[in-house]
Amino acid sequence: MKISHDDEGNLHRLLDGELLPEAAVALRARIAAEPALAARFRALEGLRSCFAGDRFAGERGSGAPLSAGFTAGVLAAARRLPSRHEMDEQEVGDGVIVVCRRLLLAAAVVVAFGLVWRSGVIGRVFEVSHGALEAESSEMEQEIQRLDALIQSGAIGERSPK
């Protein structure tokens, strides 16, 4: 039996205690009546037990307690900080520096591009690429007609096939 997208979402919400009480009651009644839904819900509950086990371990062990002087240490470090007014000023200053740095970078890029342009490198690149382009078909046609005319006038000789 298929479990719909909505049912799947509601099973997660039920597991997380996020369903409204009446919706939770209704879904629990369906879980009791529908084996596929019940199996899926038990599987989700099982999955959650993985985290519960790790949470237990974390709370007991690796959630290393902070040192006794932690609060005092933070307060001492906070005392060494500049005043809020100074920090605000510093933040503004930092912001200005960032903007200036970006503007300088943009200006450097523009200047570099200008220098390259003036040196003619870009122009040559374009020329080369233009040179590589084929002529328009109308130009080709004109050129063929011109050559035909030259041959007919005897200005140039027609090559005989060998």
């Binding site: 039996m1 298929k2 479990i3 719909s4 997208h5 799947e8 979402g9 997660h12 596929a36 199996a39 899926r40 038990r42 599987a43 509950e45 099982g46 999955l47 037990s49 993985c50």
Partner: peptide, 22 residues
């Protein structure tokens, strides 16, 4: 180590919960 792996119907495995499960 999959908890309750025998509980879930075979057709329900490996599908995305966000995208519909069979």
């Amino acid at each position: 180590l999959v908890p309750g792996r025998d509980l879930e119907p075979a057709s329900g495995r490996g599908r995305s919960p966000g995208g519909g499960v069979q």
